[in-house]
Design a protein around this nucleic acid. Structure first.
Length: 362
DNA sequence: TATTCGTGGCG
DNA sequence: TCGCCAAGAAT
């Protein structure tokens, strides 16, 4: 029983009208005006942007998206790259399983003629494409009438309907609300409008209800709850772990000792400095990757991951030219780029490079 | 169903 | 300094 004095059609119309006037200009987006003229976005660019945007802010994705599409303008180009190249370019973006899945997905699609599936069901079979991303590509690239439910949409729905149940338990309810609203006429624009609204107006901390095209229908607005919703289940505190990072340069040619991490798990598949185990209680056991005189670089590296804090001691050494490392391999100085390392490892590099034993080399 | 997976910006 | 959170997926 709908006891509201507004209809879903009216709500859709208000949102789309707002989007027509306020859509963000994004490099991977075909705006509402162009779209009205029949222009459709390139599914490859939609896919690439959506994967990058998973749990990641637009500001950061802009830079990476520009670089990726410059290097690899088509899915076949990305498929032809090596996984190491893709990992190096992804470095700093986080959630590195995305990069591995991105590359695997590109090879599957390229092998299949370079065409992405056009349905949500087909898309969801590909690595790295889950329910959200499949629906987003289907709606945005193909105008399929799919409900696209991300964090923004969940927040908008929680407020619009004053859903008090905390996340993540409320997810099915919020998804149902979103599904009931999907525009049958402009599904792609509707999906992007919902996300723009969440990103620029119905924001987490300080919603700008005065500028919201849906304020007239918003239950949370009416009851003064907008800022409180959506509620979330209490989070468990992050433990603190400690470890040691080892930065070795080779005397003479200045090569750096780096190690590729195992393909799964934390920072899986990325390039980095050899490290000890990371422990919570006891001090970490030393685990130098080669026999040498190691010096404490002094400054500690602090870094916070999704579920723990880490503090790393940094040890450095200048290794003799003929030394054989127990782990990792030497990368020539001219081939080394700190930008190809994940953020944690960049921080280690920034500390190590200040030490005389490291700085003195070439 | 609950964990595990990065990072940077902001209040 | 610190907790919160962002266009989630995989296991």
């Amino acid at each position: 029983m709908n006891t509201e004095h507004w209809t879903k059609a009216e709500l859709r119309a208000r949102l789309l009208a707002w989007y027509d006037a306020n859509a963000r200009a994004l490099p991977w987006r075909v705006g509402p005006a162009e779209r009205a003229r029949g222009v459709r976005p390139d599914p490859y660019r939609v896919w690439l942007s959506e994967v990058m945007l998973q749990q990641t802010t637009v500001a950061v994705v802009r830079r990476y998206f520009a670089r990726f599409t410059e290097l690899w303008p088509r899915v076949e180009d990305l498929a032809a790259a090596s996984e190491a190249q893709v990992m190096a370019e992804w470095a700093g973006l986080g959630y590195y399983a995305r990069a591995r899945n991105l590359h695997a997905c590109a090879r599957i699609v390229a092998e299949a003629g370079g065409r992405f599936p056009s349905t949500r069901e087909g898309l969801e079979k590909l690595p790295g494409i889950g329910p959200y991303t499949a629906a987003a590509i289907a709606a945005i690239a193909h105008d399929a009438p799919e409900a696209v439910v991300d964090g923004n949409v969940e927040r908008v729905m929680a407020r619009l309907h004053a859903v008090e149940e905390p996340l993540p338990k409320a997810k099915p309810r919020l998804a149902a609300h979103a599904a009931a609203l999907v525009s049958p006429h402009r599904p792609g624009d509707f999906a992007q409008a919902m996300m723009d609204l969440g990103a620029t107006v119905c924001t987490p901390r300080a919603p700008a209800c005065g500028r919201c095209p849906l304020a007239f229908a918003c239950a949370a607005r009416a009851s003064g709850l907008a800022r409180e919703l959506p509620r979330r289940a209490a989070k468990t505190p992050k433990p603190r772990r400690r470890g040691i990072a080892y930065v070795a340069r080779r005397a003479g040619d200045g090569a750096w000792l780096l190690e590729r991490r195992p393909p799964r798990g934390l920072l899986g598949g990325t390039l980095g400095w050899p490290v000890s185990e990371w422990t919570e209680g006891d001090a970490p056991a030393p685990a130098p990757p080669l026999a040498a005189e190691w010096s404490d670089a002094g400054a500690r590296v602090r870094h916070t991951f999704t579920h723990f804090h880490l503090e790393l001691e940094v040890f450095v050494t200048l290794a003799a030219p003929g030394v054989e490392p127990r782990r990792g391999s030497f990368v020539p100085a001219e081939a080394f780029r700190a930008e190809a390392l994940p953020s944690l490892m960049r921080k280690v590099h920034a500390v190590a490079r200040e030490h005389p034993a490291i700085a003195a080399v070439s």
